[in-house]
Amino acid sequence: MSSDHLSSIEHLKKEFQKLPGIGARSAERMAFHVLRESKTEADALAAAIRAVKESVFHCRHCFNLTEQDPCPICEDPVRDRGELWVVEQPKDVWSLEATHLVRGLYHVLMGHIAPLDGVEPGDLTIDELVERVKAGDIREVVLATNPTIEGDGTALHIQSLLSDYDVRITRPARGLAVGSPLEYASVAMLEAAIRGRRDL
């Protein structure tokens, strides 16, 4: 049977297909799942999607995603206001928060410098980061950008901008993946681990 006359299903399928990691077959399964669900369930899904677009925005201080401004992390009185973790994306904040080890505040750059892709420092929130450091409460900036060429380049660029300020600049350790055998480590991981080895 042709599905041409079921244009609303096709439309929903095409919308699902735009989601990351969703191909045509998965989109079709999701569309038929929505059809099978009750109208209440489908309305709840639609409402959740609408709500996230209407109520989530970037914190004016740290640029993390939030539903209140400033965000709960920036507002938290228990946080160490002298420690600032700089990350590329809001989802990196989620990853670091999952460790329960970060006691400081965050600054989300909203990307990384990528000269080969035309992304320049002015496209990120680096100026706002420098302003936060200039304000003077911060004693350590942890440059937790990704350990890629672009992430490292971004960290080095920020380091050069902050070198004039009385602030400690650190970078998270890198090297071997915990729980993974040595034989699966890449040359880059091994090099980083060897160069960064420390006393036991």
Binding site: P115, L116, I149, D152, G153, L156, H157, Q159, S160, S186, V187, A188, E191, A192, R195
Partner: peptide
């Protein structure tokens, strides 16, 4: 990977020079 040229990541001028070299080849 046979070489990741890890020393490039130590300095911004090295990193920018390497990216420049790759871009003109591309």
């Amino acid at each position: 990977t046979s070489s990741s040229y890890s020393g490039l990541r130590d300095r911004l001028d090295r990193l920018n020079a390497a990216q420049y070299a790759a871009d003109i080849v591309a």
